[in-house]
Simulated scan of single mutants.
Amino acid sequence: MFKDHAKIIHAISSAGEINGRKKLQKMIYIAKKLTFPFQEKYQFHFYGPYSEELTLRVEELCEMGYLNEVREKRAGYYQYCYSITDSGRDFLSMHEMDLPTLEPCLCDMNKQNARFLELVSTVLYFDTLEKDEVMEKVFTLKSKQKYTHEEMNEAYEYIKKLKEKAKL
Rank of each mutant, 00 (worst) to 15 (best):
E157I: 08
T85C: 03
E17M: 13
S87W: 12
Y80C: 07
F139D: 08
K161D: 13
Q112P: 01
K23W: 11
E72W: 04
Y80H: 10
G65P: 06
C81V: 14
E52G: 04
C107P: 00
R115A: 09
C62V: 13
E69H: 05
F139G: 02
E150N: 04
K142R: 10
A11Q: 05
S83H: 05
K33V: 10
R115D: 03
K33Q: 11
E157G: 15
Y77N: 01
Y78M: 07
Y147V: 15
F2N: 10
V123T: 08
E53W: 00
N113V: 08
I18D: 00
K163M: 14
K26I: 08
N19M: 09
R71A: 07
E96F: 02
G48P: 10
M64R: 13
L119G: 06
K131D: 15
R74F: 03
F36C: 05
I8Y: 07
Q79F: 04
M27T: 05
C107D: 00
M97F: 03
E151C: 12
V134E: 13
E118F: 01
K142G: 08
H95K: 04
A75W: 04
A114K: 02
F44R: 02
A166F: 07
I30A: 04
L124R: 02
M135W: 15
C62T: 15
A75G: 13
K144V: 11
L141P: 07
Q112H: 07
E40L: 12
K33T: 12
G88E: 08
L24S: 03
I30P: 00
A15V: 13
M109W: 02
M27S: 08
M1Q: 14
N113L: 14
V123D: 07
A114Y: 01
E59A: 01
L117A: 08
G88R: 03
H5Y: 14
K111P: 00
E136Q: 14
Y77L: 11
N19P: 01
G88T: 15
Y156W: 12
L168M: 15
K33W: 09
F139H: 11
L61A: 09
D98I: 10
L54D: 01
K7S: 09
G88P: 06
N110Q: 11
V138F: 05
A155H: 03
K32R: 08
S143A: 15
E133P: 12
L24A: 12
R71W: 10
L141I: 12
L61I: 11
G88W: 09
Y50Q: 04
L124C: 04
K165Q: 08
I84P: 03
L168I: 06
S83M: 11
L129D: 15
K137A: 11
A11S: 06
